[in-house]
Amino acid sequence: MIRGKNLLALKDLSRREIWEIIDQARTFREVLDRPIPIVPALRGKTILLLFFEPSTRTQISFNIAAKRLSADVVTFSASSSSVLKGETLLDTARNIEVMRVDGVVLRHSAPGSAQFLADRLTAFVVNAGDGCHEHPTQGLLDIYTMLEHHESLEDKVVLIVGDIKHSRVARSNIWGLTKLGAEVVVCGPPTLLPAEVEKMGVRVASNIDEALPDADVVYVLRIQKERQTSGLFPSVQEYRELYGLTKARARRLKKKVLLMHPGPINRGVEIDPEVADGPRSVILDQAKNGVAVRMSVLYLLAGG
């Protein structure tokens, strides 16, 4: 059982808890292939999707996951421009409390916002991305997808390429993967690597071309173009040349490598279209598995 009632960060989970979520997700994956892919497990429960940042796939994925479990889903989306921090989030929390919501899925730009909400609610809270802190269900669905191809991740080399510093996806993956025994290597512009990143248990590769041939998984992060305007990397073209998973680079990969990306893809920037759509890409599997993993999380947290 997941300790406590929330899923806030993979940093907090034990190896056993990660495996439990993955194992149950495998069962839910089977439910998704049934003629009627719905089970009545969360009948009568209300799940609130509280999205203070724009999101398409994560929101849809949680929405479908909750509906496949027969929960009632209420969606609240606010534009990121509104100042919805601190007091406002607390006010929101109080309103949720009196409306008898059983679980809240929160996406917010402020790191720690999910914890903030969890501390103040009796409803369970799932972090669907809090600033550059964590995005635990993304990490879990990525791990699930890797485990579809490998029985264990022990000593498997996972190369994460891109803006590690601002990426909650990278952070959740790093915590989850290292707990499962994988060897995580990160590669990106020095300005986009967190200070003391090695302390998270990862190795830094300064040259992507040297790191690629050893990787069992290459995880390409989305490059946020707005980082360029703030001067963290010179140009999109230069980024592609130095760190992009181009067609030429893809030739250096292991035959059975898995290519992953959290989406949405900047085609031709961090990854070439031919590579993203190629036979070694499991990017669409990630999206599909996301529903099963989120069902597993909602089921385990909503119990009792």
Partner: peptide, 20 residues
């Protein structure tokens, strides 16, 4: 398990197995 009428009453979410 997912169809049990007491699923909301048990303390912890029971482990489920895949139907086949």
């Amino acid at each position: 398990t997912l169809y049990r009428d007491d699923l909301q009453l048990v303390a912890e979410s029971p482990v489920i197995h895949s139907s086949n």
